[in-house]
Simulated assay, not measured.
Amino acid sequence: MIRRAVGVLGELLVTAGVLTLLFVVWQLHWTDLTSERAQAAAVDALQERWDATPAPTASAAAPTAPTAPTAPAAPAVPDVDQSPPTGDAFAIVYVPRFGSDYAVPVVEGIGAEELEDGIGHYPGTAMPGGVGNFAIAGHRVTYGKPFNRVAELQEGDAVVVATAERWYTYRVRRHRIVSPTAVEITAPVPDRPGEQPTEAWLTMTACHPMYSARERYIVYAQLESSQDRAAGPPASLAAVG
């Protein structure tokens, strides 16, 4: 009787181990495959929609101060002045450091469902190009892992955000590792709650360390320049750094 019970227990443990392994494979690989396809389709859909509605020319677009080589440009008036409905894709992020084929949609919201669809935008934070803090979140593993290589970003690297009307080039300024409760990272002036913003920032957040949610990896980037979408992609997309 005892031998039979031990045998049954052993079979149950083996079955549980197989099921756990299958779950890990699904979580780490299958979700990547399905999410990458869905995110690529979302990028294509955004680009097709934008192409169907020609962007305004320089004379019609919001003016932007000239960019000085040693100082960030004055923030442009964003073409998106309010947050879209939760789950809607409204922008595309390009990071040359991550490869020439890196293009991920930005969707409104940072819930589990939104982060399966791409990079999530923190509700209530600035929109692309706007004064304040355009704060976004992405997975480092699973569901397309758009921020898998976030720790590889270097000071001066470009993070380019495309919207229906404009391209925005941000430059990486610094990194931080914080606790999940560090809400100051999404303040209008990053790390300075209550301070009035005068510049445009981008904050990228991801879980840290890899395969853990114990901390958050943070990258801050500052707006360098913007240009009409009609003018074509910015030069910042052509090279790393």
Results as ranks from 00 to 15, higher is better:
R140C: 00
R140F: 02
V141H: 01
T142R: 07
Y143C: 06
G144S: 08
G144L: 00
K145H: 01
P146S: 04
F147P: 01
R149T: 02
R149Y: 03
A151W: 03
L153W: 01
L153Q: 04
Q154C: 09
E155V: 11
E155I: 10
E155G: 13
G156V: 04
A158Y: 06
A164E: 08
E165T: 11
R166C: 11
R166W: 09
Y168P: 06
T169A: 10
Y170A: 06
R171N: 11
R171F: 08
V172Y: 05
R173G: 07
H175T: 07
V178I: 15
V178L: 12
S179Y: 12
P180K: 08
T181Q: 10
A182C: 13
E184L: 12
I185E: 04
A187W: 15
A187V: 09
V189P: 08
V189L: 00
V189F: 04
V189M: 04
P190Q: 04
D191V: 11
D191H: 13
D191A: 11
D191K: 15
R192F: 12
R192E: 13
P193Y: 07
G194R: 14
E195D: 10
E195G: 09
Q196W: 10
Q196S: 13
Q196T: 13
Q196K: 14
P197N: 08
E199Q: 15
A200E: 05
W201L: 10
M204V: 05
M204T: 01
M204A: 06
C207F: 01
H208V: 07
H208K: 12
P209D: 07
Y211G: 03
S212V: 02
A213H: 12
A213R: 11
E215S: 14
E215N: 15
R216H: 12
Y217W: 09
